[in-house]
Simulated assay, not measured.
Amino acid sequence: MSLVLTVDLARVALTRFAVPATGTPGAWTSEERPIGFPATQLVPSWTARTPPGSWVEVELRARTAGGGLTKWYVMGRWSEHGTPRTSVAGQGDEDGDVAVDTLVARRPLVAFQVRVTLHGAASGTVSGTASGAEVGSLCVMASAVPHRPPAPSPPGTAGAVELEVPRHSQHEHAGHYPQYDGGGANWCGPASVAMVLGFWGRGPDAAELEWVGPGDPCPAVDHAARGTFDSSYQGTGNWPFNVAYAGTYGLSGFVTRLRSAAELEAFVRAGIPVITSQSFRVHELPGAGYSTTGSIMVVTGFTAEGDVVVNDPAAPCDAQVRRVHPRAAFENVWLRGSGSGGIAYVLHPPEVPLPPSDGNW
């Protein structure tokens, strides 16, 4: 696995684990995997099917640069039915802490292990049985992000490209089901996942949407909010939970960090929209019209000049969801270490190939 070591770019390595076809009932632990550089954060992501009464727990532990092993940190307890679906607060110690979905190191990390435990009366092996939980995919992203963003990447030369991704505004759902993250006004994550599921022709069927009230502009957004809600965090923005939700509809997915708009463009030209997370003040991102401490968008295209086309669910209505942002401004607010450091999650059908990578996907 090759790694970008330029000081202006994030160091990122995504490791995929081949979950065995058979194994110790209820649990599977990976071998220790070297990272290749001193990492400051680890983020797991997974897809799983969990029949009623079953759920999965994902844990990480790491080896510090000093040679010691950390304890096991719980990175999430997940059931597609919501019992449980929670991050675990209060795990901090001298080695690190879990910030909802991210293991934040207090000492540099050089290797890690991941452990998956199945729970529930019907749980069989980690690969699943006819009646038990089944883990479909498992990834861990290790990264070290510089505080300042890199210099803007040059636009490509292949011309404009834009994917026909459905457009859903979170604000069309204002006041809906406030028990899930305060209601639709906060649902940038669920709205983005619903857009990508719709692009791939996936998502809940009519029977799964019967609980949504009549007259709803897009019941799939409400369903995604319920399906991604983290009962500890009390929000719908847990990145691995959004990936896992999409996985229940047959998509593969993972959380990683990308390092430029050029990497985003490679996905879009491969036919794959990408969900990104960024924070900004209104003057920092022309075309947005608002400030945010954290917002999720779907990157859907690039103009001929290289500017970034997004579906922004924070728009006031569906008709205004499509936005175009200057390339350099978008890269700045997305890649800087004081923001998300280039966090993205990629959702795609297993048969759709990803563009070539040097290690971060």
Rank of each mutant, 00 (worst) to 15 (best):
V274D: 05
V274R: 10
E32G: 01
R336A: 05
L354F: 03
A319T: 12
R85H: 02
P313S: 07
G227V: 00
P355I: 10
A65S: 13
A144T: 10
V193E: 08
G301K: 09
V140L: 05
H348M: 06
P355M: 09
L3Y: 03
G136F: 00
G237L: 08
S131F: 14
E31I: 11
P150V: 06
P355F: 10
E162N: 12
G213C: 11
T117R: 15
A329K: 11
A99C: 11
W334V: 01
P20L: 00
F229E: 09
G235W: 01
S54T: 15
G120M: 11
V19W: 00
V324N: 07
P38Y: 02
P38D: 03
F302M: 11
G159E: 09
R327Q: 04
F112T: 07
A21E: 00
E80A: 14
T6I: 07
T125S: 07
L335K: 01
Y245M: 09
L138T: 01
V135R: 01
Y177F: 13
V310E: 02
S123F: 10
T22N: 00
R281E: 15
A225K: 01
R257W: 08
G175I: 04
G26N: 06
A160K: 09
P214M: 10
R16C: 04
Y245N: 07
A314C: 13
R115H: 03
S169Q: 05
A122V: 08
P150D: 04
E351M: 08
L138Y: 00
H325T: 12
W28C: 01
Y177N: 13
W239P: 04
A261S: 14
P178K: 09
P52F: 11
V309G: 02
I296W: 13
P355V: 07
Y290N: 10
